[in-house]
């Protein structure tokens, strides 16, 4: 919903905090997720994610969530699906070239980013979309990747200890 999407951008700071807290919570529960199996969780997680993010951001479930880089304005709502800034066609009143009744999602993104803790995140270059990620949970993937990285670090340090003893 357009009004809700704009509310989310106006409350980008609060949502950023909520997101960070939620991400830490998800990561904390990694042992549980592993026990159930990440692949098994995919279906239910994607359903919940779609409902929540659909309501807050008009999320399109691209599977590559970059809301923390885009001021909580989902770039997939751009009719050109631009992930790195506005096109050159933005109208003087800030409305979209293609959908004149919608504010440019990148104008929203820029305003939202200024409210966030690190406004410079908007300068990050976001990569191209991998269509095979579509309709998959981005929360679960990020948690899984973060947990693996953390485990990787732990395993490396354990290996270092072993080497040290030898």
């Amino acid at each position: 919903m357009y009004a809700m999407r704009r509310w989310s951008v106006r409350h980008a700071r609060g949502l950023e905090w909520l997101y960070d807290t939620f991400a830490a919570f998800m990561l904390m529960l990694d042992p549980l997720w592993r026990r159930i199996g990440y692949e098994r969780l995919e279906g239910p997680a994607a359903t919940v994610e779609k409902a929540v993010k659909g309501f807050l951001f008009d999320c399109r479930m691209c599977g590559h969530c970059v809301l923390s880089h885009t001021g909580m304005s989902c770039p997939m709502n751009c009719p050109k699906a631009l992930r790195n800034g506005p096109c050159g066609g933005v109208r003087p009143d800030g409305m979209c070239e293609i959908e004149p009744e919608m504010r440019c999602v990148w104008i929203e993104a820029y305003e939202g980013s200024l409210r966030m803790r690190n406004p410079g995140n908007i300068e990050t270059i976001n990569g191209h979309i991998d269509e095979t990620f579509k309709n998959r949970s981005s929360w679960l993937r990020v948690t899984h990747e973060a947990a693996e990285a953390r485990r990787g670090l732990r395993e490396a340090s354990a290996a270092d200890l072993v080497r040290g003893r030898n």
Binding site: N84, G85, P86, G88, G89, V90, R91, P92, G94, C104, W106, I107, Y110, E111, I122, E123, I125
Partner: peptide
Amino acid sequence: AENPFSPPYEFRPLRLKKKVEA
């Protein structure tokens, strides 16, 4: 390409920077 004459004006130089980095 870049369009310095289309809003958000303050973001346009940053967008140029992104393109140069890309």
